[in-house]
Amino acid sequence: MSEGANAFDLIFSGEAKLYSIVALSLYVSVCAVALAAFVGFPLGAFLALSRFPGRSVLVVTMNAFMGLPPVVVGLVVFLLLSRSGPLGHWGILFTPRAMIIAQALLVLPIIVALSRQTIEDLWEEYRDELNAMRVGPVRCVVTLLWDGRFSLMTTLLAGFGRASAEVGTVILVGGNIDGFTRTMTTAIALETSKGDLPLAMGLGVVLITIVLAINAMAWGVRRVGELRAG
């Protein structure tokens, strides 16, 4: 990224580097959200449907953890994955996998808390009907998740937004290694520290554009889905 270059030149000249940064950002955030959803949706549904001692503590904790400071999550994952930490033998610090794990932890409370709320509201409506149909608990959860899919998609977007916008954890556990763990946000942080504010701003505009495009796409999918499924 030599002098005079700006983000738009980088895009339109098809500079491979920018593409790889964008691709890595999307890859990490999408994987993190998928991982968090895989665990978070069933957990949210479980919290919504079950009653056990300590449940409200868990619910409040998840609600509070939606605002978990990224740097703290980053630090915890960093200490876990460091060679001197308990999971050091995995050898994945400063790799995209470490970034995915950290972001997934960051996103998980959002998915759990919001999906619990969605599923609990839906359960209120569906409970008698599903019980009258003699539907078992596992199938209840699956049915509620599926029928709540449009609201849950918004939950996924909220998670994706948090993951893709975040810089604190990925710079700590990813190391911002050029061509390997550099994402949009860490690239913006780096260009800012180099004093190349126009390039940093340009990258910021690119990031916002991508996030907008993804949300627009999701909105379109939701509209079509709702038209088709009611």
Binding site: Y27, V30, C31, A34, L35, F38, I92, F94, T95, P96, R97, I100, G175, I177, D178, L190, S193, K194
Partner: peptide, 26 residues
């Protein structure tokens, strides 16, 4: 996506991690 997650880091190449200062990078 999950499969991608697992397969991603298998491709090992000759690489080292260098921890250095901001001045050498910036």
């Amino acid at each position: 996506v999950s499969a991608g997650l697992c397969g991603q880091a298998i491709a090992q190449e000759k690489s080292i991690v260098v921890s250095s200062t901001t001045s050498t990078t910036d």
